[in-house]
């Protein structure tokens, strides 16, 4: 039971951290000029933090709906790889698989794969999945409703929160693999270099050129 209590504590912490990000997502979207329903509905049906932030960021920057959807989708291609990794953890029944698929995120996959046996992997996936889905959506709603009341979110430094979240999420991957590190740095350099001359959303796509230098000498 100790391990399970530890799991609940860790899930609660990530729900809390995600909640802060969710509030800032809702607040940024509404403070930027989008109607309340956009961040709220997007969180329910897209349910992918980084893709939501980038899509809203592009919409607010005037990059257009096509670039917003395309960039979000590109960011979410990784969930296809995740879903392959946790397919047998989610469960076998049809309804279970259809619902579980929607809960596949960086966090649920990390929680599930960190468990030592199949029973606990399954429990971790569903506990973190349901907990994160509920807390994320409630917090986005709260942030969206407070959005205009919060005034200029810049005052609270919320615009610095998302890049910091990304840093926390990608650091383990960067720490462990020199090839990934090279590709990521090259990609970021490309993205920054072209930012002033191409439409919003495109710099991040062009960063994929960094993959060319990812391959390590065999």
């Amino acid at each position: 039971m100790t391990a399970d209590r530890g799991l609940l504590r860790d899930v609660a912490l990530v729900c809390l951290a995600g909640g802060v990000v969710g509030v800032s997502f809702g607040a940024i979207a509404v403070a930027g000029g989008l109607p309340v329903w956009v961040p709220v509905v997007m969180s329910l049906v897209v349910y992918a933090g980084s893709a939501q932030f980038s899509a809203v960021g592009i919409l607010l920057a005037g990059g257009g709906p096509f670039a917003a959807a395309a960039t979000g989708l590109l960011l979410n291609t990784r969930t296809a790889a995740y879903s392959l990794a946790v397919a047998d953890i989610i469960g076998r029944r049809r309804a279970t698989r259809l619902i579980g698929a929607h809960l596949v995120t960086d966090e649920t996959v990390a929680f599930a794969l960190a468990q030592p046996d199949p029973r606990r992997r399954r429990a971790a996936f569903w506990i973190s999945g349901v907990g994160l889905f509920v807390s994320w959506n409630l917090c986005v709603l709260g942030g969206a409703l407070a959005g205009s009341a919060l005034g200029d979110t810049g005052t609270y430094g919320l615009d610095a929160a998302f890049p910091a979240v990304l840093a926390a999420l990608v650091l383990p991957a960067l720490r462990g693999d020199a090839g990934v590190r090279r590709a990521a740095l090259a990609g970021a350099a490309v993205a920054l270099a072209v930012t002033s001359v191409v439409p919003a959303g495109v710099p991040v796509l062009l960063a994929l050129a960094g993959l060319l230098v990812a391959r390590r000498p065999a």
Binding site: S50, F53, S54, G57, A61, L74, L75, T77, R78, A80, A81, A160, F162, P163, L166, A167, L169, V170, A173, L174, D177, G179, V180, A183, A184, L185, G187, A188, V190, A191, L192, T195, S196, V197, A200, P203, V204, A207, L208, G210, L211, A214
Partner: peptide
């Protein structure tokens, strides 16, 4: 390759998100 691509995308998003606003 898929997971490396995801990291490359996230780091690019991090860098542009941290340093740029609109096109500046």
């Amino acid at each position: 390759l898929l997971s490396t691509a995801a990291v490359v995308l996230l780091v690019a998003l991090l860098a542009t998100g941290a340093l740029t606003q609109a096109h500046g």
